[in-house]
């Protein structure tokens, strides 16, 4: 594997040529927000939070899906980028009903964390607050569309890691929803193995264990690299 050198925020760094920008940026200890990216599953490029400026490119590029290139010069925190990240979070917060005070993941929510990090203290857009239903038909899990940010982590983990593909997205645009099976109650979907991976990777309180109360639902994604390394390399790293 060949090595390339590039500049990140004017610092010269080297990287493997098959790496994505995001990985290299994070290796440098630079904190860059992401919501749809998840180590262990394919990348979507949908949340647009990891956008970076690349010199010579007129467009902003999503770091999670952009391969590194020799001689690249990347900026991760320009004034414009930070402003856009804030606006994207505001848009996300306005899209559905994100009321932290009554949310099961309050305090452990990635959306909440990124908003706090970027200093989003108010939302300038109209709250759309559609009245969406909550699917509690599954024995152990609950799906609350009102807190979903459509990052599709659950869809990807169900398809790529568990291999069940119970979850998918229906509709399009603002009417997109995560569905289970043929848009039937989750509890009726026999393809679901109840493995709970979707719940663990969900960045918000949209997917949670039944019986969790406000702030109780803590999630962990570490299991993903655990099982993927185990599956592919027969190595279980403690």
């Amino acid at each position: 594997m060949s090595v390339v050198t590039l500049h990140i925020n004017d610092e010269l760094v080297s990287a493997r040529s098959d790496q994505k920008l995001l990985e290299v940026i994070r290796e440098q200890g630079i904190d860059i927000p992401t919501l749809c990216h998840l180590e262990g599953v394919s990348d979507l490029g949908g949340c647009r939070l990891c956008l970076v400026e690349v010199q010579g490119s007129s467009k902003l590029l999503a770091a999670c899906v952009t391969p590194v290139q020799e001689g690249m010069s990347v900026y991760t925190h320009s004034e414009r980028l930070v402003r856009y990240r804030r606006m994207i979070l505001e848009l996300l917060l306005s899209e559905r009903t994100h009321t932290c005070a009554v949310c099961v993941t309050n305090g452990h929510c990635e959306l909440q964390y990124e908003a706090a990090e970027l200093g989003v203290d108010h939302v300038r857009y109209e709250y759309l607050a559609p009245q969406l239903h909550l699917d509690a038909s599954h024995d152990r899990f609950t799906l609350d569309h009102n807190r979903c940010i459509l990052c599709q982590r659950c869809v990807r983990v169900c398809d790529e890691v568990e291999g069940a593909h119970t979850l998918d997205i229906m509709g399009r645009g603002a009417n997109s929803r995560v569905i289970t099976g043929l848009n039937r109650p989750w509890g009726d979907c026999v393809s679901c193995t109840s493995c709970g991976k979707c719940v663990q990777v969900c960045p918000t309180g949209a997917l949670f264990f039944k019986g969790s109360s406000v702030g109780e639902m803590e999630k962990r994604h570490a299991f993903l690299s655990w099982i993927l390394n185990g599956r592919e390399r027969k190595e279980w790293q403690w």
């Binding site: 593909h165 998918d168 229906m170 509709g171 569905i179 099976g181 848009n183």
Partner: peptide, 10 residues
């Protein structure tokens, strides 16, 4: 998978 077909149809 059923969800796939439903996703495409909608």
């Amino acid at each position: 998978p059923q969800s796939w077909v439903y996703g495409v149809a909608t």
